[in-house]
Write a protein that binds this DNA or RNA. Structure first.
Lengths: 127, 127
DNA sequence: CTGTATCCCCGTAGATACTG
DNA sequence: CAGTATCTACGGGGATACAG
């Protein structure tokens, strides 16, 4: 058994980290928050992510039970994503992480406008 | 500016995730916890990590202000690692993550012995 | 509109041997 | 004892084009 398999299956913290440990999943969770979003809306709000990667991440989050994917058989196609109970339960932890980082940042200050996930002017995520 | 530079410098959550988002850092933080540990003790307790990677991770955690590295100019050399206030403040969040994972795990059950960071029999981390 | 299919780059981390 | 030095392998993530 490979070590990162161990990581994913043996240890709760390891599982948790693999569920949200990617580059984009915490961001995606915060963007979806409590309302349903279509794939395109997500892509616009997190404009620095490629569609392929967004798809990949959403699929993994679906597998991990973080998001629900609802596909409507329409023309044009429509897909909506929302957080599961498990995904919602993650949000407070993410906020704690933000607070933790904000509290203990030492010298490197970043401009206020860059501190928000969504840039107000462009309505696009600056990540 | 590359995107993962954005990730690291613009967004508090991004910074937080890059500070603990690696494969090993949460594990290392939990192993060090509140008492000083020598390099070799860490290596034994997390026996599935290579020494090179352990060194790398500790260095990054030192840069991120999570751990303190104390080097004693002795023969044989001795180095002790401990958590900073920032590192200690991370622990409750890690415990929340564990609880979150434990609460919402659906079907895949793992044996109890694999659920603890430290395997009692071998005194080695199973991760 | 919501994705796939490719291809590629780069960083993480593993193995092994060596050093002060 | 506490690391470095190399080399290698793997996989995430990005760019772009295409598909249903």
């Amino acid at each position: 058994m490979k070590k990162n398999e161990l990581m994913k299956h043996s240890c709760p913290l390891g599982k948790a980290m693999s569920a949200l440990g990617s580059k984009w999943k915490p961001i995606i969770a915060l963007v979806i928050k409590d309302r349903k979003l279509r794939f395109g809306e997500l892509a616009v709000r997190i404009n620095v992510i490629s569609r392929k990667v967004l798809t990949d991440q959403l699929r993994e989050m679906e597998t991990d039970g973080l998001v629900v994917r609802e596909e409507f058989k329409e023309i044009p196609p429509r897909v909506e994503y929302s957080l599961t109970e498990k995904g919602l339960a993650l949000l407070p932890i993410l906020y704690m992480l933000e607070e933790w980082e904000a509290k203990y940042q030492n010298k490197e200050l970043y401009a206020e406008k860059d501190c928000n996930l969504l840039d107000k002017k462009s309505e696009k995520a600056v990540v």
